[in-house]
Amino acid sequence: MSRKMSIFTAAFVALVVVLIFGFQHVKQGIIADKLADYSPPPVSVTTVSASTDVWVKELQAVGAIVASQGVNVTPQVSGQLLSINFSSGEKVEQGQLLIQLDDSLTQAELESSKASLQLSEVDYKRKKELRKTNNISQSDLDRATAKLAHDKASIKGIETTIDYMAIKAPFSGVVGIRMVNLGDYLTPGQAIISLQNLDVLFVDFTTPATNLPLLKMGEEVKVYSDAFKGSEFSAKIIAIDNIVDQESRNISVRALLDNSGGDFLPGMYVTVKVETEQKNEIIPLPNVAVSYSLYGDSVFTLTKTDEKNATGEFYIYIAERKTIDVVMFKADRAGVSGDIQPGDIVVTSNQQQLKNKARVIVNNDASKQSSAGE
């Protein structure tokens, strides 16, 4: 290749490079100018107007239903199960015979002991008379006296054993599903049946010890259960524990629940709400209006401008994030205080698309139509 051709080729390549970089530079400049002039379309949101209200402080906790009287009926002595005198799930009365163990051998021992007692009584009376005339020694009379007392005690012990073999209901209540069958050999402490008094139940729950000044004996407690959605039950506080749990720093509370309707069973979990006498002036907002964060809770409020959107249908608002404190909850609302005032326009949707100074439009009518359609 000649020198002239080489120079021409190099010049051509340089020209192409200059043109390419020049085009890119012009292109980037145009893009930058466009971006500088670009304004994102306003975000469509729904809102509510903030207003003040007075809420009674409400304590809420998870409670457990406990029987006022409940026990697993067990035998106190060993024996073979001779008869079952109840049906699973039925109501029984205090003192009613539930289980009879085979006491035939013990009954025979009782008869033998009674015969021995009769002989001891005769021997004691005879020796007592002989002692009056000094025909026997005092030690002979003492032995007869001791033998008589021993035989009486033996009979009393056997009668107690026989009574233990007839297992009775310690209190009135409802029995569960029996865990034994005829012919089983039962031992002391073996579970036979669960007996629960279901007419009156306890609702046990815990609450932080800081709430102790808000709790009062006899105060009404509202009880709710997922098993009875939409229903509210009433109980009354009958006991507040005298010690705070060292690990959780909670205090235990017990409320009395009338269960004459038979709605609840021991072991069920319920939601407990206690309305205290403490009143707080707050601003109630829908829960969806609050953005919850480890760094603090907040809401977006809006300031109206004179500008309208491209279609001229809505005014443009400017969003501002404000820090708030959530004082309490009630149903689907949060009672808040902090950097928010009555009359503020508070955003209730699309907060994830907002930041400070973001431009928004308020379209509450569209929200209502959407909700109606759903």
Rank of each mutant, 00 (worst) to 15 (best):
K216A: 12
Y164M: 09
G176K: 12
D142P: 01
I155T: 08
R143K: 10
F202K: 05
K156M: 07
G189A: 03
D184P: 05
H150Y: 03
V200P: 01
T206D: 15
V203G: 00
K147N: 14
I167A: 07
I155M: 10
L148S: 01
L215M: 07
T210F: 06
A153K: 12
K216I: 00
P188V: 10
Y185I: 14
P213A: 02
S172G: 13
T145M: 04
T160W: 11
R178S: 14
K216H: 13
T145D: 11
I158A: 07
D142N: 09
Y185C: 04
I158W: 05
A153D: 07
A153C: 11
Q196M: 08
M179A: 14
G183M: 05
G157H: 15
A146F: 02
P170D: 11
L141S: 07
P213N: 10
I177K: 13
M179V: 10
D163M: 15
D199G: 13
V174W: 02
K156D: 12
K168S: 06
I158N: 06
M165H: 04
T207R: 09
M217I: 15
I193M: 12
A166K: 14
Q190T: 12
N181T: 13
V180L: 02
K147P: 00
Q196H: 10
V203P: 02
I167Q: 07
L215R: 03
I177N: 12
A146Q: 09
L212T: 05
A149C: 00
K152P: 02
D163G: 13
L141W: 00
A209T: 11
V175L: 06
T206H: 06
L148H: 04
A166Y: 03
N197T: 00
L195Y: 02
D140E: 15
T161I: 15
H150C: 00
L182F: 02
L212I: 11
N197V: 00
T210P: 04
V203I: 08
K152M: 07
F171E: 10
A209C: 05
P188E: 13
P170W: 08
T161S: 14
G157F: 08
D140A: 14
P208A: 03
L201H: 03
I167N: 07
L148G: 08
V175H: 04
K168A: 08
L195V: 09
V175N: 03
Q196F: 03
T160E: 13
A169Q: 07
L215F: 09
D184V: 05
T207N: 04
M217N: 10
H150G: 00
M165P: 11
G157W: 14
D142F: 03
L186S: 06
D199W: 00
K147S: 11
Y185P: 00
G157S: 15
G189Y: 11
Y185S: 12
V200W: 01
V174L: 01
M165Y: 08
M165A: 06
A153L: 13
R143V: 04
M179K: 15
G157V: 12
I167T: 08
H150K: 01
A209S: 08
A146E: 08
L212A: 13
Q196S: 08
H150R: 00
L198M: 02
R178T: 15
F205I: 12
F171A: 15
L141V: 06
Y164A: 09
K216D: 06
F202H: 11
N197E: 15
V180E: 11
Q190A: 12
I177Q: 09
P208Q: 10
